[in-house]
């Protein structure tokens, strides 16, 4: 409502919205990937579909998966551990997949950075190999 929401409030709002938007983003990402691929038949897309189907199966059978846990001996191991339950539910909703995907993206970026660093090192080495020579030629003249 206010024109100047304070930072803390803004942050907490974003955290909450991030949780809600995560699933929607996962779908959006899938569509983007598909669009980019165009006519190329891609293994990656098939994998994506496969993952989606896995997820669908997981969600569809969620009640059945949970039911035996609750009506049997397993009850003892799940009771009192809400963080396990939260993790499990996040997985069912595909939220951990989004996190994993983001993790993948981050590590891919990391690899790119490493590759760039390596290139940069080569370039710097090349420059250094040239510059002492030019320095020498300068001092010589």
């Amino acid at each position: 409502m206010s024109d100047q929401p304070n930072k803390e409030l803004e942050l907490s709002r974003k955290v909450w919205l991030a949780g809600i938007g995560a699933y929607g983003r996962a779908i959006g990402d899938a569509q983007d990937v598909y669009a980019k691929m165009g006519k190329e038949t891609s293994k990656a897309f098939d994998e994506l579909v496969g993952r989606g189907e896995d997820l669908e199966a997981k969600v569809a059978s969620a009640a059945k998966q949970y039911a035996p846990m609750m009506s049997g001996e397993a009850v003892k191991s799940t009771v009192g551990n809400i963080s396990d339950r939260l993790e499990k539910m996040k997985a069912t909703l595909g939220l951990t997949e989004v996190a994993a995907q983001q993790q993948d993206e981050i590590s891919e970026l990391g690899q790119r950075m490493d590759a760039m660093d390596a290139k940069l090192d080569t370039i710097l080495a090349a420059i250094q190999a040239i510059s002492p020579a030019s320095d020498n030629s300068n001092t010589d003249s």
Partner: peptide, 13 residues
């Protein structure tokens, strides 16, 4: 904060 929403799913389930 973000877990509240996941928590509702657990309750409903």
């Amino acid at each position: 904060l973000a877990d509240n929403w996941v928590y509702f799913y657990i309750l409903f389930e």
